[in-house]
């Protein structure tokens, strides 16, 4: 994991120096985690696609501002979050009602073990739906703190740098999100 992050940072540095050939390898390493982050951030696949695409474009445009040796993944996360906030501001100014879209909870890749019974599969799906719904409903600040610290494995200190706040605030927000999720799952089960 550490070696992968180091390789990613080295590739980003090479790309920032003007070596366009490095992009392919950079994309291969960065895209899966960045897309997953966008998916968790937006909770809808269509929004995640847009957010990811816009983030990659911004990352390309701002590549010269990348600091040598800095964590490229965290930098990309920060750009993705900034992009997401811009999108939220845009949609708040121009609200529109759209139809129900498929979200993370009903994604066909979320399978349970083949040996489980239909009842447990249905229950697992219900729990997933409840968790995804609760994540989508909670405040953006709590959600992003939870995603970074609990799902992406970023330390509270680094998450604070990515979100522009303090580590203590991140811990509090992540804890609030965690408690909210637990309560939602308890209600479902």
């Amino acid at each position: 994991m550490h070696a992968e992050l180091d390789e990613l940072s080295a590739l980003m540095d090479s790309y920032a120096s003007g070596n366009d050939v490095a992009f392919e390898a950079l994309y291969a390493l960065l895209a899966p985690r960045l897309y997953r982050f966008c998916l968790r951030l937006t909770a809808k696949r269509a929004d995640a696609d847009d957010c990811f695409q816009e983030t990659m474009l911004k990352l390309h445009r701002a590549r010269a501002t990348y600091v040598r040796g800095a964590n490229a993944l965290y930098w990309a996360f920060a750009i993705a979050r900034s992009t997401y906030l811009t999108r939220i501001r845009y949609w708040r100014r121009r609200p529109e009602t759209i139809g129900v879209t498929e979200d993370v909870a009903v994604d066909e890749t979320l399978h349970t073990c083949a040996e489980t019974t239909p009842e447990t599969q249905a229950m697992a799906l219900e729990v997933l739906e409840a968790a995804a719904f609760e994540l989508a409903c909670m405040s953006e600040k709590n959600r992003i703190a939870y995603i970074l610290t609990k799902q992406e494995g970023v330390s509270a200190h680094d998450a604070a740098a990515i979100l522009g706040t303090t580590a203590e605030v991140i811990r509090q927000r992540a804890h609030r999100a965690y408690a909210q999720l637990r309560a939602a799952i308890d209600r479902t089960v």
Binding site: Y66, V67, A70, N71, Y74, W75, A78, D158, A160, A161, I162, G164, T165, T166
Partner: peptide
């Protein structure tokens, strides 16, 4: 300043 993570000075 850009800091350790390249994300600038902390908010505080």
């Amino acid at each position: 300043r850009r800091g350790r993570l390249g994300l600038g000075s902390s908010a505080v």
